[in-house]
Amino acid sequence: MDTDFDLESLVNVEQTFYDEGYQNGFSHGRIHGLIEGRALGREKGFEMWEELGFYEGFAKTWMAVLVKQGKSDERASQHIRYLLDTISHFPRVNPSASEPASEELDIPKLLRQIRSRYKVLCSSLGVRPRLQSAEVAAMEDKEEDDTRMEEDEVRTPTRGTLGSAIPVWKIDKNGMKKPVTNQDLSF
């Protein structure tokens, strides 16, 4: 009986040491996770909203120009309203934090819609669209890949009710063990 008792208490003691270390490690890891996540989130948020803000400023200023020129009833102003309306629906917080998974919000689709509406507006105004950086172009390629993947996934029956639960800007949990790259953040 004594031997049994000793073994058990030894196991518990090991567990206690482990737990103590784990707790301390966890709070330290949390600090690092917050810091690294914050740095990435800042960059990503800036990148996306610099582009969207450009479109917004572009559209609003053109509206002012059209009003000044007395052309506010032209087709271009309709395009402006469309564009501004789509931008106003674009989330300013990462939806994975604020919305439940059931929310019907397709960020890549919305972004594509905004970009194409911007281009349509440009051509109706007869101006050249803003040059896209290589990064944005690469992102568009990636989005096309994502779209294809999504379409494939939709066809698989296992998706079921999770169909709308596409994580947006979700940091891949497995990816965090490796150095985090933008590849871990899905659009």
Binding site: G25, F26, S27, G29, R30, G33, I35, R38, G41, N94
Partner: peptide, 18 residues
Amino acid sequence: GITAGKEAASQEGFDAGF
């Protein structure tokens, strides 16, 4: 614990920075 804490908090940090 470090690994788990990092994983648990990085999304929160991302969302806040974003």
